[in-house]
Design a protein around this nucleic acid. Structure first.
Lengths: 236, 236
DNA sequence: TCGCTAAAAATAGTATACAAAAATAAATCT
DNA sequence: AGATTTATTTTTGTATACTATTTTTAGCGA
């Protein structure tokens, strides 16, 4: 039952290890295929990914540590449902860290990085127009990209975590079809960075995050869906 | 083999669950009983705490997620040894977050909280004079206390994590007998908060953290010690 | 039909068993 | 002796087995 022995003759695709399963679940949550409150039964997930509950358990523990899933004793894991209070805290901490990111970025950003950012925003744009599920993820990854460019891995990790949780919060409280990040706001941030206009970069980023926070108002409806079929798209 | 059945007749002490083991290891690391690089074999730890490797494993995973232990594939867990670069990032992020903590604390702190802070510093003082192993932990907990009072649970959690990792860093790079946090600096911060002097509170905190960073210079010598005997003090 | 209790099924928590890899010890050769 | 292989032991990675808890279903009586 070794996973390596299952490789087909064709392409040497290595089957989902613990890490790819983590990625898959994470993506499913961020892209809202799995929604806040959805149950995450260990055996169902294990079956779909072809691993035992042991592995599932460790991954669920990791996701719990990152605030993406709730874990109630004897009652299993569910996609996290942050309270409104937690939600505000998350947004606030995120703003604080991203302020710092921009502050440092204004001083050190290179033309190559500017280009990379522009490319990314372009991809956001196309995903948005095609109404792809990627668009939600890409919007978040813009902020993560900024954080990584700022050159502090610890801050980048936290920003990553917080941006992910913000996706969750928008899924919970946000308006159904709201665009979480206006693409043009991202463009404005890049433009300000390019000009080296720190004041403007600050202002736009802060306004941008304020706007995102603002959208956390309505409650979303939770339909009954089947986790098995949803996971099919993520098992790979 | 249920852990509850092992209760002795005397005091109904409930044996270490997963959580108390987590606390114990964490404390052992922060108080430098376990030092950066020390091996953490799963079966040894499991034996000492009377649980199976399954539990040990989950706890080690959690501590890894918090950056307190390194986890190399097939080679087990060791107390984390952050690189100098990581160390700088940790300190920088910590400063950024604690800046925010102080900013918000100046506006909302109550007399009762001031008193609590003073009490804490007093306890730091006595632990310091008695050269207790608690003194290291208490110094860190002052900062954690501040963060909790600021009213943002997410920020508080990050500060907690970062302060812990800073203990680790000082154990790795700090001068052998350096006092990590000068107690009087803590007192000055409290005083500034009491006066509502935000400028001064800022300045003192920043200077304080800069000083702490400063102490991360010398390399420490790693003696060979026996993990079994060290853990005896933490099994409870 | 409704509510209650009891049995059954499902699911999580923990320990153990076994496989794979690494570390250590022993053996062999030059 | 010293170095290099080979065997042994130790330790980690994963699956499975078993227990405990929760949830669901079935049965029963008012």
């Amino acid at each position: 039952m070794n996973e390596q022995t299952l490789t087909t003759g064709k392409k040497r695709q290595r089957l989902p290890s613990s890490n790819t399963m983590y990625e898959a679940l994470r993506r499913a949550i961020i892209e809202r295929a799995l929604r806040p409150g959805d149950k995450l039964p260990e055996d169902v997930i294990g079956d779909r990914f072809g691993v035992s509950r042991t592995i599932v358990r460790s991954v669920l523990g990791r996701l719990h540590g990152e605030g993406l899933i709730d874990l109630k004793p004897n009652r299993g894991a569910t996609v996290a449902q942050p309270t409104l209070e937690e939600a505000y805290d998350i947004f606030e901490t995120r703003r604080s860290l991203e302020r710092d990111v921009v502050r440092r970025l204004v001083e050190r950003i290179t033309p190559a990085e500017i280009k990379r950012l522009k490319d990314h925003v372009a991809r956001e744009e196309t995903a948005r127009t095609q109404d792809s599920p990627d668009s939600i993820r890409l919007a978040g990854e813009f902020h993560i990209l900024l954080a990584e460019m700022a050159g502090n891995a610890v801050t980048a990790r936290y920003v990553n975590e917080l941006v992910s949780r913000c996706s969750l919060i928008l899924a919970l409280y946000g308006r159904p079809h709201s665009s979480d990040c206006a693409v043009n706001e991202h463009l404005e941030i890049v433009a300000a960075l390019q000009k080296g206009d720190s004041e403007r970069a600050f202002a736009v980023m802060d306004h941008h995050l304020e706007a995102v926070t603002e959208r956390a108002l309505l409650t979303s409806s939770n339909h009954q869906r089947d986790i098995r079929s949803i996971l099919d798209d993520y098992v790979k």
